[in-house]
């Protein structure tokens, strides 16, 4: 067993090494945000602080913000500060960007977790039921629900849910963060849209696996149907789902941005939307960096989970006999 552990840590090390160029690329693109954004950041910040726009003041501000000098020099300067944890200062609040983002991150993580949970709770029952009752009413109902989930934009679904469950029926709070009850509507809004894809994928995957010989063989051995579905079929049908999860993580992250806006959820997404309106470039840089890091790390986790799901990947496909 020891070699398996050693192999895994070697693999992890290798995967982390490949992340370095990715992160360098991300940092360059993020840095260029400032360059590509219209308007002179020094002008913006002076205007925000009600300082008179004299050439001297501009010069001084550019120097302080590290905006003078050639591009690569500014990049290296910016990168050095980034590596020491300094993401700059928000133009609008004057607070450090790192602090602004970190203070709102728990709210976004809470929402994302709620959304994922809602997604799983919707997608799995729908997908499994649709596959088991293929071409019956249940299947059509499930596919229709999935179609609605996929085609209704989340801002509209959110408003619809607010109007129905919060305003008319008064069951749940309209907006804001606090209790579990506050979390329900935003999670449902976020999860429903995502669930559509997974329910359909799960249905297709299960239908395919249920045709396979080893499922027939398990049934021919009289293995209980719950085991046939829950173990033999599901475990194999999950593999493509996990892949898509890694790829569609962007939808989840983008989704939180919209949902946070609709429900006035005090998360990073809302901060980023406000930053867009305020031309608050350092906040946007921080947001982009954070999302890139999350994206890369989750995809690493996805790759690792294959190894759990499929022993052929874990053990390298070698024959022993």
């Amino acid at each position: 067993m020891w070699y398996r552990g050693a192999f895994l840590s070697y693999y992890l090390l290798k995967r982390f090494a490949t992340l370095i160029p990715v992160m360098i690329g991300v940092s360059i693109i993020t840095f260029l945000l400032v360059e590509l954004a219209p308007g002179d950041p020094a002008e913006i910040i002076l205007a925000k602080r009600d300082i008179e726009l004299t050439p001297q003041a501009l010069e001084e501000a550019r120097r302080l913000m590290g905006l003078d000098g050639p591009l690569y020099e500014r990049y290296l300067h910016w990168l050095r500060r980034l590596l020491s944890g300094d993401l700059g200062v928000s133009y609008s609040s004057g607070e450090p960007v790192a602090r602004e983002i970190l203070s709102r991150l728990p709210a976004t993580l809470e929402l994302a977790a709620g959304g994922l949970l809602a997604m799983l709770l919707i997608a799995f029952p729908l997908g499994i039921a649709a596959a088991l009752y293929n071409r019956t009413f249940i299947d059509h109902f499930s596919r229709f629900t999935a179609l609605i989930g996929a085609s209704v934009p989340s801002f509209y679904l959110g408003l619809l849910l607010i109007s129905m469950l919060a305003v008319h029926l008064d069951w749940l709070p309209v907006m804001g963060r606090g209790t579990i009850r506050h979390l329900l509507l935003p999670s449902l809004t976020l999860g429903f849209g995502l669930a559509a894809t997974y329910a359909r994928l799960l249905r297709a995957g299960l239908l395919e696996v249920l045709q396979l010989e080893y499922v027939r063989a398990a049934r021919a051995r009289g293995v209980r149907e719950t085991l046939v579905i829950g173990r033999h079929a599901l475990k194999n049908a999950l593999i493509p789902l996990v892949t898509v999860f890694g790829l569609s993580l962007g939808n989840l992250l983008g989704g939180t941005m919209v949902v946070e806006q609709v429900f006035a959820w005090p998360g990073v997404g809302r901060l980023a939307v406000q930053a867009i309106f305020n031309r608050d470039i350092p906040i946007l840089q921080g947001y982009a960096l954070l999302m890139a890091v999350i994206y890369v790390l989750v995809n690493l986790a996805v790759d690792l989970s294959y190894r759990y799901l499929d022993p052929r990947i874990r053990l390298g496909g070698k024959e022993v006999g």
């Binding site: 010989e213 021919a220 051995r221 009289g222 194999n236």
Partner: peptide, 19 residues
Amino acid sequence: RGEELSILFQDPLAALNPV
């Protein structure tokens, strides 16, 4: 099935669950 009446299929690689 399995208890009184069993079947052996032709391709064991297909008949055994790979995972």
